[in-house]
Design a protein around this nucleic acid. Structure first.
Length: 189
DNA sequence: GAGAAGATCTCCT
DNA sequence: GGAGATCTTCTCA
């Protein structure tokens, strides 16, 4: 997807990312995952966002150019993948919460030490593990990288999308900023 | 420099 | 359904 796609309001980009293909290439092979669940995070208007209290060493990607990957480590165990949206200087990112693996099952299973296809990436921590995404991917340019990027899909406009409040946060629950493909089995929970 | 919380997962009952 | 694992980052003294 071109830079233009990401350089729009975070809520718009979040919804349009559903059904798109996340591509991960390493020396071990290629994995393609169809995005089925996302959440939007804002700036000073969103207490649940890392960017709520301004720029820090960790969240500086959220204030940079659109189309870059924001990856952070959480709970001493997991990485979460976000996509920077909005324009440069305006914080906003989409958390990719779940996806269904459509190519590279074997490698994804190996990364997760698991054989159940649906459970390979049905949660943010699981997804990064299945795709071997770690902190080294933080700050990567999704528009120019050949190791991590997102492709368009046909007919995403006809997708049935469900909306809810975000998961795992203690503030900002009033915002209905979680979007997922209705009735998709790879959605978390 | 210490203390606490965190955009989660897995195993156990 | 619930708690432990495990460590980075932020806040405040």
């Amino acid at each position: 997807l071109p830079r233009q796609f990401y350089a729009r309001p975070v809520l718009v980009v979040a919804k349009e990312l559903l059904g798109k293909f996340l591509v991960r290439k390493t020396c071990d092979g290629r994995i393609v995952a169809r995005i089925v669940e996302v959440e939007a995070y804002g700036g000073s208007d969103d207490p649940a966002s890392h960017a709520y209290r301004g720029i820090t060493e960790r969240n500086r990607v959220m204030f940079g150019k659109p189309g870059f990957a924001y990856v952070y480590f959480i709970y001493g165990n997991h990485y979460c993948l976000n996509v920077k949206t909005e324009t440069e200087g305006v914080p906003g990112a989409v958390l990719v919460r779940a996806a269904e693996i459509v190519d590279g099952h074997e490698l994804a299973c190996k990364n997760r030490k698991l054989t159940s296809l649906i459970e390979l990436a049905n949660g943010p921590g699981k997804l990064t593990k299945a795709l071997n995404i770690t902190k080294t991917q933080n700050g990567r340019d999704l528009v120019k990288s050949d190791q991590l990027y997102i492709c368009g899909a046909k007919d995403t406009e006809s997708l049935a999308i469900s909306i809810s409040s975000r998961i795992g946060i203690k503030t900002g629950n009033d915002k209905l900023w979680r979007f997922y493909i209705t009735n998709n089995k790879a959605v978390s929970r």
